[in-house]
Design a protein around this nucleic acid. Structure first.
Lengths: 233, 233
DNA sequence: TCGAGCACCGGATCGTTGATCCGGTCCACG
DNA sequence: CGTGGACCGGATCAACGATCCGGTGCTCGA
């Protein structure tokens, strides 16, 4: 009988087994997202391609599309996944203000631990991890006595503030040689001292005030405003 | 006299002029940026390519690279250009608080008039228009009596807040059929009423509170906090 | 008057990307 | 045994950013 497939008899032993014994579990959506986060953490948002991601997973690039519809899906899943690390405080053990401070602080920290996430904030965040923490934020404000229209305003203000802050901080501290970039900006201010007199002497990146204390100040102001609403509705 | 150049006498009228009479002025960096903004406004950030931009300008795509180094340059220039529309208030005629409110309000409005800009906020903004308005913000706060470390904190809080707010609002109101997307999100909350009880009844996109009033509340709270610092340093 | 240099332009092309087509291989189950 | 569905990947496509290199017309000095 002629062999219908090309190849000669007995070469089975020379060919590697069709599905090589994996050290890793078979491909799954979770494993793709996990590896995508690792890739993003190590190399930044610009270096995530489906081919490189597949290579790290030891598969072909096209295989990923069985588990995931598009590259955007990977980004959306990765973005939501990192928020699982934001601990949801127990509101009983402390006041609402401490609970919200902890939640927003955790949110802020996670965004900065994964600087690539800041560039992805401009997409609808409807994943389970994000929604669970939004739910907690709304519930805590509601229990504190904040009612409409202040409820929406308070939730928006807090989340928009943390998003904007993380975005700006990631812009200036992430990437290669952030200190060099900041120094270049400083020099630019000083070189144009006539146009930017205040920035050149008091501006950002010039004064040695750190991001975190500035972030804390703004958060305090927002919470003060919200607290005032509670007391005088 | 013989014609020195090749070609027969009188055919000038048959040949098109070598450099056709442009209806538009010759290509320049400004014209590229202007057209890029028009393209972005009409079709969104995802549809800006060098080829399409060149086509709208009536040139070849490679020609753009004579005036601009990379595509990122076009984006950076376009991003800074739109901030020229943010009017710098006159601080004399009004109090510092009114001036800052006007500046931040104008900033917010411009970001929403060009929703694509929100997706670009994660890059260093060092253009002349942005810096001129930052200079005004710092100068106004300084004149109002805000000193370090509150000066940096105040400037950061305000700009980060407006950036985050615009980013979120653009995410949910820009693009195709924003109402449809919002409705889908609402349905998602209600379908998972057990997991998101508060979001389903009081959540964003559910309550009919508009973005602008929420934005105004947060801005008021921040300014209240800053004003308190001025009075009690 | 003329020609050398410069500012400006664009067809052809390169490497890379996201995504699809289509033909495989394996395993569970009847 | 053998059949169907879950899973995989080489080859391929169109589109993208960017570059190479050869043009063109204008300007200015000798």
């Amino acid at each position: 009988m002629g062999t219908r497939q090309s190849g000669s008899a007995g070469d089975v032993w020379l060919r590697p087994p069709a599905r090589p014994a994996r050290e890793a579990p078979p491909l799954s959506r979770d494993r793709i997202v996990e590896e995508a986060i690792a890739l993003l953490d190590e190399e930044g948002a610009g270096w995530l391609t489906m081919r490189r991601l597949a290579e790290r997973l030891g598969t072909g690039s096209t295989t990923l599309y069985w588990h995931v519809k598009t590259k955007d899906d990977v980004l959306d899943l990765a973005l939501d996944a990192i928020f699982a690390a934001v601990e949801i405080p127990r509101v009983d053990s402390q006041g609402w203000r401490a609970a919200i401070t902890a939640l927003i602080g955790g949110w802020h920290a996670v965004l900065l631990e994964h600087p690539w996430s800041a560039a992805l904030l401009g997409r609808p965040m409807l994943g389970p991890n994000v929604l669970a923490r939004s739910e907690f934020l709304y519930a805590t404000l509601l229990k504190a006595g904040v009612a409409e229209p202040h409820l929406t305003a308070a939730a928006y203000s807090l989340s928009n503030y943390v998003i904007g802050s993380a975005l700006m901080q990631a812009t200036w501290t992430a990437g290669d040689e952030p200190a060099t970039r900041a120094a270049a900006a400083r020099d630019h201010f000083r070189a144009n001292h006539d146009r930017y007199p205040v920035l050149a002497t008091h501006g950002p990146l010039v004064v040695d005030s750190d991001w975190d204390t500035s972030f804390a100040f703004g958060l305090t102001w927002l919470l003060d405003g919200i607290e005032a609403i509670c007391r005088a509705p």
